[in-house]
Amino acid sequence: MSRVPSPPPPAEMSSGPVAESWCYTQIKVVKFSYMWTINNFSFCREEMGEVIKSSTFSSGANDKLKWCLRVNPKGLDEESKDYLSLYLLLVSCPKSEVRAKFKFSILNAKGEETKAMESQRAYRFVQGKDWGFKKFIRRDFLLDEANGLLPDDKLTLFCEVSVVQDSVNISGQNTMNMVKVPECRLADELGGLWENSRFTDCCLCVAGQEFQAHKAILAARSPVFSAMFEHEMEESKKNRVEINDVEPEVFKEMMCFIYTGKAPNLDKMADDLLAAADKYALERLKVMCEDALCSNLSVENAAEILILADLHSADQLKTQAVDFINYHASDVLETSGWKSMVVSHPHLVAEAYRSLASAQCPFLGPPRKRLKQS
């Protein structure tokens, strides 16, 4: 649940008159999402009104509101027999009622949201009550392989729920002597030191190019640089560091992050930047690179990204790559990247197969709970 924001200063709310007192009302909304995959969808019983329910879910471990999704594969009634019906059901509720908006969509073979439908307002739910769409999607369109909505005969539904909580009022009075504290510009100011090479005390040599930097900042941000300058190493004695395995453009992006906490060109060089972040123990930059690479996972590059993640101990990226390969196994196994990995990294192939087997055979063990970014 997000923290209630402070109200904007009255002088910034309007260029008009300023009242002596004010009130700011925040209506709290808890948002969460749920993904439900139905394997072997074409084998569902086709009687009209037949119901399939998901397991229950909530916004978190401490949330007492429990929900589930309900599907009628062949419609709810005679009117909707040519459609799939989809509903959000409130299973248990400690209150007399709650209000919530919802959005349903289908994830296609690429994991993209399609055929989205959402409620136009927050509906009133009581325990045992459901709301949804009797005519969510035509069955003939859903079952047509050309539309790519049932890869490997799996129907994957994605649901986003927004639950309306209580409202909170914050009130106060205006004073004539309003003090406005300026925003912190530390990142910009440190970035200026790097860009202008002011007050530098060490030189970093990268592929024949020299960059002036500040030992204190490098040591504070990177345990690797800290070790170089702290001990009686040649880098500490000469205040000069030779860097041979990072390209200059990648190095500059890494230094921008060290000084400012930002990497504006990360998406263009996420793979190389991940390697640099791993070498210099820049954990936050490493996770930022993992996130960017996750966003660009595809059938063509899944094997290469899995190898990269394994090489640099990028655990979150590795998990996402394995899950992606499992979901698109029939396509990924035909790529040149996968065939190369079979020869060069057989242990990763074995890991992917083990994960695929456990996903398809849940009876082999208890269900695993899916539970950071600093």
Results as ranks from 00 to 15, higher is better:
V299W: 04
K74P: 12
H231Y: 08
A263F: 11
L333P: 06
L190A: 14
E283A: 07
R368I: 03
V343K: 09
E160C: 08
D152M: 07
Q173R: 02
V91D: 10
H312E: 01
L356F: 11
A275K: 06
V349Y: 12
L86C: 10
H347F: 05
W22T: 00
S298V: 12
E145T: 08
C361D: 12
D267G: 02
L155V: 15
R354K: 12
V161A: 06
V349P: 06
S330W: 09
P17D: 12
K154E: 12
E160I: 07
G60D: 07
P367Y: 04
E112H: 10
S236N: 07
N169R: 01
K215G: 07
Q127M: 13
L149S: 02
C93T: 06
E20G: 04
S340K: 12
F57W: 00
M233N: 14
R124T: 05
P346W: 07
R70E: 08
P362D: 14
Q316L: 01
Y87L: 09
Y87M: 09
M233S: 11
P9K: 13
P7A: 06
P223N: 15
T335V: 01
C294Q: 08
Q373G: 11
P182G: 07
V299Y: 11
G49P: 01
P362S: 13
S344Q: 14
G365C: 14
T175W: 04
N108T: 03
E79I: 06
E290K: 04
R45T: 04
A109T: 09
L107D: 13
Y353L: 14
N326M: 10
L348I: 02
C68P: 00
V4E: 15
D144Y: 09
F57L: 02
L308P: 01
Q209P: 11
S222F: 11
G192F: 11
F229W: 15
F32T: 09
N326G: 05
S222C: 14
N147Q: 06
A352L: 11
F251R: 00
V71H: 15
T175Q: 08
E97S: 10
N108A: 15
L76Q: 11
E249Q: 01
K115S: 09
P151G: 10
Q120W: 09
C68M: 08
I243M: 02
F133K: 11
A352K: 00
K238C: 01
G337S: 11
E230A: 14
N326I: 10
H328K: 12
D152Q: 15
H231W: 11
S336T: 06
K154W: 08
D331P: 08
N72D: 08
A270L: 04
D323T: 08
S295N: 04
L274P: 00
I38P: 00
L142S: 06
F251K: 00
S33H: 09
